[in-house]
Design a protein around this nucleic acid. Structure first.
Lengths: 118, 118
DNA sequence: TCGACACTTCGATAACCGTCGATATGTTAG
DNA sequence: CTAACATATCGACGGTTATCGAAGTGTCGA
């Protein structure tokens, strides 16, 4: 029988964060998790995530954000790109505007890694 | 009737983190949450939390930690004091040794703030 | 009282980060 | 093509942080 092994490729959301309280994290696991937490550990970025994640339509135009978080456009752009790089947001270019939406898997993954007590 | 209003004092674990995805965080909520996340967003501190939080006995002597995370004793002491200050660990002095244990409410609070999607 | 030990605090250093103004890139309308 | 606009990138500045060795503090046993 030609059984083909179905390789389960872990999704990004699964790869990012081993549970904190099941076994002592090794250096690599700790570094991976710290990377995502660092992306979230800033008040402006938290507000951006919160604004985008609670938007009625599920997405927000970058053009609206500087006034909402009271920072200049380059600063907001910088924070958004960090959040995209960390997998927390995704970016879509539409015409001259950039739209951002939440990638909820990432938040869920890191949240559960913190809560999961075996 | 002399009705006395029972004031519900929020516990520390409740105060720390408003849910990210129920309504847009204001500046103060974002700052509070960022403070706890900053305390966790470092690989050495994550390993310390993980080591202490998974210890059989529920507590770990500071004396054992420098070798476990491969940092000098002053550096470990610094990280531990940040974690205590953030409410993630608690410290108890016993004789000349300092013992640390997890305060699980804090991790739970921040984890749930990330996961809670209303 | 003294010495050994556990830990904290201090001071210094190098790296990193948030922020901004200026500039570059890219898109659309005319 | 050009002007206008949205966004990204650059370069700089000031503040923060992780790290270490050295020195200080507190505790215990002899």
């Amino acid at each position: 029988m030609n059984s083909v092994k179905t390789l389960r490729v872990p999704e990004e959301s699964e790869r990012c964060c081993a549970p904190l309280l099941r076994a002592a994290l090794d250096e690599e696991q700790a570094a991976d998790m710290a990377e995502v937490l660092k992306a979230l550990a800033d008040p402006v970025r938290l507000r951006l995530v919160s604004i985008i994640g609670t938007a009625e339509s599920g997405e927000v135009c970058a053009c609206d954000l500087p006034v909402l978080v009271d920072r200049t456009q380059p600063t907001v752009s910088h924070h958004l790109s960090l959040l995209v790089k960390a997998g927390v947001l995704e970016r879509e270019q539409r015409g001259k505007w950039a739209w951002f939406r939440l990638r909820p898997q990432r938040l869920a993954a890191v949240g559960e890694a913190l809560v999961d007590t075996g």
